[in-house]
Simulated scan of single mutants.
Amino acid sequence: MISLRFQPCTAGVLSASVSRAGFIKRCDSTKPGRTVRRIGTMAMAASPLEICVKESITTPNKLGDCPFCQRVLLTMEEKHVPYDMKMVDLSNKPEWFLKISQEGKVPVVKFDEKWVPDSDVITQALEDKFPEPPLATPPEKASVGSKIFSTFIGFLKSKDSGDGTEQVFLDELSTFNDHIKENGPFINGEKISAADLSLAPKLYHMKIALGHYKNWSVPDSLSFVISYMENVFSRESFVNTQAQTEDVIAGWRPKVMG
């Protein structure tokens, strides 16, 4: 039995829908508010999965900055699963969406007429329903890099340069650097896995937010972290699903300024 819980992103008004699967062949705009991307030949016979995601707060009809939404989209992209992306405005939650998600949170995906929340649950369901290519991470590696995001947030919000939050964050990056050095180029070796798809959007937020608000970047000494980020960020799946820089900056502003 699947336990349903939400990841911390909230949602609102339908503004656009995008169908995707696998590798892009062409992209056409069919009518206002809807962009249909026709991709490859794999999985196109299947009905696209409906997914509600955060809409950009800076550009209408663009994907927003929720890393948990990107995690699910990355999984669909890597598995070449077609999807129908419903962009929703977090600041204006309509009744139709609150019926899907009583807490008004995204992502949510429709599986067999049932809306399922929580990126952990969704990505596991995708792995079960679409086993090829396999993305499961071995249990002993599943938590690699898992503390980077929380320590990044602590450092980002810190107003005191001497409070130790930067060092705690750097310690986590250093541990990750050592792992990739010994096991890379990905967390589970030669092939990308679910752990990478979970961590990569968070590293993307880390890079943009710390660069903007603290003029900080990953030290050159952590060369394997740098190469890992370059490797993952350059994948077609990531480019297709990444948030705009201005959205990431705007999304973290309340935590930094508050």
Rank of each mutant, 00 (worst) to 15 (best):
V116E: 07
F130M: 05
D118H: 06
F130R: 00
Q167E: 14
S146M: 12
G164F: 13
V108D: 02
A125M: 15
K129L: 14
S143T: 10
S143W: 01
S143M: 14
V106K: 06
T165I: 09
D128K: 09
E140Q: 10
G154K: 08
T151E: 13
E103K: 14
I153S: 09
F149R: 07
P107Q: 06
V121N: 00
V108M: 02
D163G: 04
I153H: 07
D112H: 05
D120L: 09
P138A: 06
V121Q: 14
V106D: 00
V106H: 01
D112P: 03
D128T: 10
P131V: 06
D163I: 14
Q124M: 02
S161T: 11
S143L: 07
D163R: 06
F152E: 01
S119K: 10
W115I: 08
Q167L: 13
L135W: 05
A125E: 13
G154I: 05
K141N: 14
S158R: 01
F130P: 00
D118R: 04
A125K: 15
A136P: 04
S119P: 09
D118I: 12
K141E: 15
T123N: 14
E166V: 15
E140N: 06
G104Y: 12
T165V: 09
P107H: 08
E166T: 12
K105E: 02
P134Q: 08
P138H: 03
E140G: 01
V144E: 05
F130I: 11
D128E: 11
A142S: 05
L156I: 11
F155C: 02
P107F: 12
E127D: 06
T123H: 07
T137D: 09
L126T: 03
K129N: 15
D163L: 13
V106Y: 01
K157I: 05
D160I: 10
P131Y: 03
K129T: 14
V106I: 11
K141Q: 15
T137V: 13
D128L: 07
S158P: 00
E140V: 11
P138R: 01
T151V: 05
S119R: 07
K147L: 08
V106G: 03
I122K: 05
I153Y: 08
I153N: 01
E103A: 08
T165P: 05
I148F: 04
W115P: 02
V108I: 14
S150L: 07
I153R: 09
K159W: 00
V116F: 11
S158D: 02
P139K: 13
P117H: 01
A142R: 10
I122A: 02
